Simulated scan of single mutants.
Amino acid sequence: MDTTPPAIPFSPDEDLKNSSMLHLADHFHRLATGATQVPAQSLTSHLRHAMADADVVAYHDRLVADAGPLFLHFLASVPYILEEMARIGVALTRLSQTRQADEPRTFSFFEIDAFDGSNGRALAAHSQGLIHTFTTSPNTANQAHFDRYADPTRSLFYPQSFLTLQPRLFAEAPYGRFREGFDYVYETAAFQFYSRDRKAQVNHIKPLLKPGALVFFLEKLNHEDVGQYLERERMKDNGFKTRYFTQEEIDWKRQQMLEQMQNGQVLMPELVEALSSHFKYVYLLWNSTNFYEFVATDDGVRLEQFLNVLGPIHQPEGFCFEPSAIGYVTRAPLPREEERADA
């Protein structure tokens, strides 16, 4: 007899009600208003001088200049994510410019629970409106900063959790421009604040995707080796965060927040399995301490086009713990490969 416990049905309302996102709402509000944990110095990258691509430098500068308090805190907490987001934003712009030759239209970008939309706004501006962006955030304090800097003809904000989204929202003004779905989606380390059920979380956003969409997942992952996890945490805290926070602030955050955050983290094989159950191609783009960035899609040709315009990683030695894993972790045959196999 099968003694496996029955699967618990996915309930967005229940996940939202029980989430760390809501349990930590007061803390996120203080971060979003700049009342606590403010970085002690500018977030301008100390690697800026090494960025040979002028577009990446320009994207970096725009991202830092218009970032809200909570996003600045995020940049100061995740080693070298600023440089990585600039790299991805420039590549998405170049990919969209290439696509426009055959698809003369604007493209769409959805960032999931992404603070005040700093990255989305930077992408819309850098692409000169070629990419329109949509940001969700359950923290309403983020909206004031979004409204202060956003161009509403290019970027929109929805002050709710991504779990509340339904396709019918995009049948209404002002969100109707996204009614056909999104070309690009970026999960900004949001899923871990709700639950560990990555399959269900991805399934929830899938109705919002255009065919062949590129979907990025930035996640902080657990590790089977607790010692390895803690070593990466020490690297993050001592090798990066001390640039921006006192040791007391770092210790306080670890004690007050990270336990709740870790409850929603998953192992790398669990995430890869979840993504592979939804997408034909999964590619690990970047790793920094316990943070990982994947891109997933059903369109292998589109993914190759993106990778071909993606510039180099800007990150010091010692922060990438998974250099041998960078690349495809799931790969179905490309159409031309299938044709050769059938020949």
Rank of each mutant, 00 (worst) to 15 (best):
D61S: 05
G89P: 09
L82H: 04
S77F: 10
F74C: 09
L47G: 01
T44E: 12
Y59H: 06
A65F: 02
A54M: 06
E84M: 06
V38A: 06
A76K: 06
A65M: 09
V90N: 02
E84R: 10
L63N: 02
H60R: 04
A50F: 07
A50Y: 04
L92I: 07
A86F: 07
M85N: 14
M51P: 05
L70P: 00
Y59V: 11
H73L: 00
V57F: 10
V57E: 08
A40E: 12
A86T: 07
D66S: 14
V64M: 05
D55E: 15
D53C: 05
S45C: 08
P39Y: 10
Q41E: 14
L70E: 04
T36K: 07
M51L: 05
S45T: 13
A40Q: 11
A58L: 11
V57T: 13
L72F: 01
Y80V: 03
D53G: 06
F71W: 12
D55V: 02
A52R: 11
Y80H: 13
S42Y: 00
A52L: 10
F74Y: 15
H60I: 03
L82V: 03
R87F: 14
H60C: 06
H46N: 14
I88V: 15
V78S: 02
R48L: 15
T44S: 13
D61L: 03
E84L: 08
R48V: 13
V56Q: 13
L92T: 07
D66W: 07
H49A: 15
